[in-house]
């Protein structure tokens, strides 16, 4: 039972991060290596807000907003200049961003681990089907599910989602319909940054906040994004569930097989279905 809970909470965290990554790729054509750094920044900023205000909830709300604003700035100042260049420039740029964000983090917060305490009301364990489940884990699942639902509603039902989908699939055609695609790109990068930071802020009470935390998670996100199909957000949710559950089950029953299984899945996908396990013709975003 607790394996299921851990798997689900991991899956939703993975989805928050990979959704941003895959949206950014779909719209901007850029693989954002700095996504993990934005996730880390979300955790640090929420830590800072908790330090100042004492409220986990204010951190959860404002850290993503602050990082989203930073994301918009990054897109406008830096990324905008490299869209028309070779992919290697985009790769180098987002890689350079990791170094900049890491160094800035060191300067501001130093090298020590930081911690965000679990919010008071979510500390008690809950009895569920005969096991004791940490209630914060349940909160992560419920919150992740809610945000995911909100994201799908935004993309599928709202005017903004329609614009993002259109501009992702044919930017020039969208332009002729009066859509300022440059603004849409900035908005999508900010949205992706928001989701990454939200992932960071919600993970903050579960793990030590440290410089390397973005790196390990970004690898898993790349796996999710590739298995789900690059730019395919529906694929990303299935792939997140697949990977999250695999990890949770693996860690419980066969720790040494987890990495092997994950990468076998990744390599298998790349070899036999490079468009992703969950893509069907012509669908994106």
């Amino acid at each position: 039972m607790s394996t299921l809970i851990i798997g689900l909470s991991l899956s939703f965290l993975l989805f928050l991060l990979s959704a941003g990554l895959t949206l950014i790729f779909g719209m901007l054509g850029v693989i954002n290596f700095a996504h993990g750094a934005l996730y880390m920044l979300g955790a640090y900023v929420s830590y800072q807000i908790v330090q100042i205000t004492g409220s986990f909830w204010l951190g959860l709300l404002f850290a993503p907003l602050i990082v989203a604003a930073l994301g918009a700035l990054i897109e406008i100042v830096a990324l905008k200049r490299v869209y028309s260049r070779d992919h290697i420039f985009q790769l180098l740029l987002t890689f350079g961003l990791i170094l900049v964000i890491d160094d800035a983090t060191k300067l501001i917060w130093g090298f020590d681990y930081k911690q965000v305490p679990t919010p008071e009301m979510l500390t008690a364990p809950v009895a569920l089907f005969g096991s004791q489940i940490p209630s914060y884990r349940l909160f992560v699942i419920a919150f992740g599910a809610l945000v995911s639902l909100g994201l799908f509603l935004l993309l599928d039902r709202s005017k903004w989602g329609m614009i993002i989908r259109a501009a992702s699939s044919d930017a020039d055609m969208a332009r002729t319909l009066g859509i300022d695609v440059n603004q849409v790109r900035t908005g999508v990068f900010a949205l992706g940054s928001f989701l990454a930071a939200l992932g960071g802020a919600i993970t903050a009470p579960l793990v030590p906040i440290e410089l390397g935390m973005g790196f390990s998670v970004i690898i898993d996100c790349f796996v999710v994004v590739i298995i789900g199909g690059l730019g395919n957000i529906r694929g990303a949710i299935f792939a997140s569930l697949l990977l999250g559950m695999t990890r949770a089950v693996g860690f419980t029953y066969a720790t040494e097989w987890v990495e092997l299984l994950t990468f076998a899945l990744l390599i298998g996908t790349l070899m036999f279905r490079p468009e992703g396990l969950f893509s069907y013709k012509g669908r994106s975003a």
Binding site: M173, R175, T176, G178, G282, S284, A285
Partner: peptide, 24 residues
């Protein structure tokens, strides 16, 4: 002017390959 600005002026474009948005 950019394409989006020209579109808003009152010019519309029906392209050769139709370019229907497949995901809409």
């Amino acid at each position: 002017l950019r394409a989006d600005q020209l579109g808003r002026l009152g010019i519309a474009y029906v392209p050769e390959d139709r370019r229907i948005f497949p995901n809409l």
